[in-house]
Nucleic acid binder design. Structure first.
Lengths: 243, 243
DNA sequence: TCATGAATGTGTATTTTTTACACTTATCAA
DNA sequence: TTGATAAGTGTAAAAAATACACATTCATGA
C-alpha cells in the first residue's frame, strides 16, 4: 500500500496534486483537540476561527491531518503547537468520530483528544494570531464547525466523570497550588459547592499530595500552604482506562 | 479530496490497482473487534488465524478496512459479520491505535471495538470456516498478530473496570437468566468470589431487573427465578464515557 | 497597638453504604 | 420418606460519606 507514484506521463499539475495513490479509497485522518483550562474561575475551551469554507467564520477545535510517521498523540501535539503555540499540556485520547458525512469535503475520521493545562502555561496563545484564536466558556460558545460541538460535549462529560477517580483536576493547576485552589477546580468542573473539611479528607485519602513547605500570602488573612502533586502519583486512568 | 481518478494513459494494470489518489499520503483505517463471551465459565475471545503474511499463522482480531459510506461502528459490525457470521452483539468503541509501525505493510490506524455477546448468539461461529476461527481463554492465548495482544489487554481491563458502574455484564447473558448466572459473570470477569446476599442487594440497587415470572428447573433442588434486563435500563456508559 | 475583617485550617457526631455471616425452602432421586 | 443440592432470605458490624462550627493567622486602618 502507501505507494509514492510518479508516473511521468501525467501533466505537471496533476503530478504535484495527486501523488499518493491507493487500491482502495482511504479516509483522511485528523486529530481534534479539546483544550480546557480555567480562566476567571470558569472552564474554558480554546477554539480557532475558520478563515475558509467549509464553515468559514465558524469556530473549530484545533487539530489537523495526521502525518505518516507520527503517532496520533504526536500529531495532536504538533497541530496544537502549530496552531496555538501550546506545548505543555496534558493529553489523553477521547473518542474517534467517523460519521461519513461529518465533513462536507469527504470522508474524514477524527481522533479526538482531551487536553488540560493551567492558565499559566497557556500564555503563548496571546502571542499567536490573536484574531483567530480565543477562549470560550461553556455558556457562551460560538457557532462551531463540523461536529465539534459534539466532541466538546463529550470531552466535558468525560472530564466531569473522571474527576472522582483520577487526578485530572491537578492538570488544570500550576505545579504548586493551595488546597482552596484545588477545591475550586473540583467545584467548577463538578458544578457543585463542596464542604471544605470533607474535601480535604477526600484529597488526603488519594495520597498524592506533597507539601512544598512554602506558603502563599494572599491578603489580610492566614497564608495558605502550598502543595504539589507527588511524583509517585499516577493518573488513575479509567479506574484502571477510557470510557 | 477523495478523488476517483481515471487517467486513461495509465497501463491497464495500474489503472485497476491504483484508482484512488490524494494530494497527501493517507493512512489506511481499519476496525478491530475484541469479541468476548463466556464459554464453560471462562472469559473467551474470538480470534482468526491469518492465512497470509504478514503474521501468517498468527491469530488476529476480526476486523478490516472501513468503507467510504459506513460509520466506524457499521464497519466493525460488517467485518464481524463477514469474517465470523456474528450479527447480534453489543458493541462499544474502545480506543484508537495508531503507532506508525504497528503494521509492517504501512500506516494503518485501527479503531478498536469491544464486543460482548452471550454464547447462545454465537453459534454461527461454528458454522463458519472452522479451521480459521476459534475461541481462546485468557490463559491460553496463541501468538497474536500486530499489536492485537495490546488491544485485547485494554479491552479486558476496560471490561473489568466498567463492571461496577455499567450494565455490561448483562450483555454476556441471554435475554433471561438467573441471579446465580449473573453473579457468575461478575465473579469471572472480576476474578473474585462474591457473597450471594450482598450481590443480590447490589444488583437490586441498580433497579434494572425485571422478573419474568418464569422459573428454571436445574436439578434436584429449588428452581431459580428468571429475570431480564428492564427495557428502561441504559448502559451506564462511562459513569457517563470511555477511558 | 489594638480591633476588625477575611481566608486558612481543624475534629466529631450522624447517616449511609458496604461487608460479613447462617439457616430455611423447594425440588429431585434413591 | 429421606437425603442431597442449589435457591432464597435478614441482620449486625464496620467503613465510608456527610453535616456541621470555631480557632488561627495575617493585613489593614482606626
Amino acid at each position: 500500500m502507501c505507494i509514492f507514484y510518479t508516473y511521468q506521463g501525467l501533466p505537471q499539475g496533476s503530478l504535484q496534486k495527486m501523488q499518493y495513490c491507493y487500491d482502495y479509497p482511504r479516509p483522511a485522518v485528523t486529530t481534534d483537540i479539546v483544550v480546557f483550562t480555567l480562566r476567571n474561575e470558569r472552564l474554558s475551551v480554546l477554539l480557532i476561527r475558520r478563515a475558509r469554507d467549509p464553515y468559514a467564520g465558524y469556530w473549530a477545535l484545533p487539530g489537523g491531518f495526521v502525518e505518516p510517521d507520527e503517532t496520533l498523540e504526536q500529531g495532536a501535539l504538533r497541530e496544537l503547537q502549530e496552531e496555538t503555540g501550546l506545548t505543555q499540556v496534558y493529553l489523553e485520547q477521547l473518542y474517534t468520530f467517523g460519521e461519513p458525512q461529518r465533513d462536507p469535503r469527504g470522508r474524514v475520521i477524527s481522533v479526538a483528544y482531551l487536553a488540560l493545562a493551567p492558565q499559566e502555561v497557556l500564555q503563548p496563545v496571546a502571542a499567536s494570531d490573536a484574531a483567530a484564536l480565543d477562549w470560550f466558556e461553556e455558556e457562551h460558545l460560538p457557532e462551531m464547525a463540523f461536529d465539534h460541538r459534539d466532541i466538546l460535549a463529550l470531552a466535558r462529560a468525560r472530564l466531569r466523570a473522571k474527576l472522582n477517580y483520577s487526578t485530572l483536576a491537578f492538570k488544570l493547576l500550576p505545579e504548586t497550588f493551595t488546597f482552596h485552589e484545588l477545591q475550586r477546580v473540583y467545584e467548577i468542573i463538578g458544578e457543585q459547592v463542596l464542604d471544605k473539611r470533607n474535601f480535604r479528607k477526600f484529597i488526603r485519602s488519594l495520597n498524592v499530595l506533597q507539601e512544598t513547605g512554602e506558603t502563599r500570602r494572599n491578603g489580610a488573612h492566614k497564608p495558605a500552604l502550598l502543595y504539589r502533586l507527588a511524583s509517585s502519583a499516577g493518573i488513575y486512568h479509567d479506574r484502571q482506562g477510557t470510557q
